[in-house]
Amino acid sequence: MAVLSLDQVVGGYGDTQILHGVSMHVDEGEIVVIIGPNGAGKSTAMKAVFGLLNLSSGRVFLDDNEITNMPTEMVVRQGVCYVPQTANIFPSLTVEENLEMGAYVRKDDFRPRMAEIYDLFPPLLEKRKHAAGTLSGGQRQMVAMGKAMMLEPKILLLDEPTAGLSPKFRGEIFSIIRTVNNAGTPILMVEQNAKQALKIADRGYVLVDGKNKFDGAGQALLDDPEVAEMFLGGGSHKVAS
């Protein structure tokens, strides 16, 4: 059963339409990756879930509840967490304070959850009193994800989690994503490094010009000659827009 689903979503910013009918879904326990050329509306599709975009038509569901055009704060309270590509931590707050902010909408005791996050990302425990802005790129990404997971979200949205990181860190991030997923959180992510992302993904969607172009299991997309030629070629090092 789908945790999150988008049904024929149309929308954009102001007068500019970017999404012209995007449908996708994420099932329990899955990693789903969105790939496509620059400007295809990949990140925009995520923002559509998050109430950051006005949808002119189409619907978004979380479990069976409609969350179309719901204010961001409410979407967070419903259990969707979003890690943007840049500016995804509070640099002047300590690591621990960042995690606390992740739990901002929680009313209950979040300390057990924090311990779990530290178990998942041991380097963070060591640096918990450091300002998050002083950490390395990979560790910042851990803070960003750890912060999002403080809510024990029903689903985690990641916008280009490896953008701008070196190949070594990229591998590290992908293994973190797997760890998070193994711990039970379904993940929907946008990735430029399509090949690596599809390898860890259960399924993938290819968006072109704001519409679904292909979809299928991660491995199936990797093997599809047309997809491979169009999107998996030398393009994996492109700088994200």
């Binding site: 943007p84 304070e97 902010m101």
Partner: peptide, 23 residues
């Protein structure tokens, strides 16, 4: 305090604060 930390967070990055559910 939670509200004080949230103030610093919002001062760091208003967009992220909103995405985090800070009203």
């Amino acid at each position: 305090t939670k509200i004080g930390k949230a103030m610093r967070a919002m001062s760091d990055s208003p967009e992220l604060a909103r995405l985090t559910g800070i009203g």
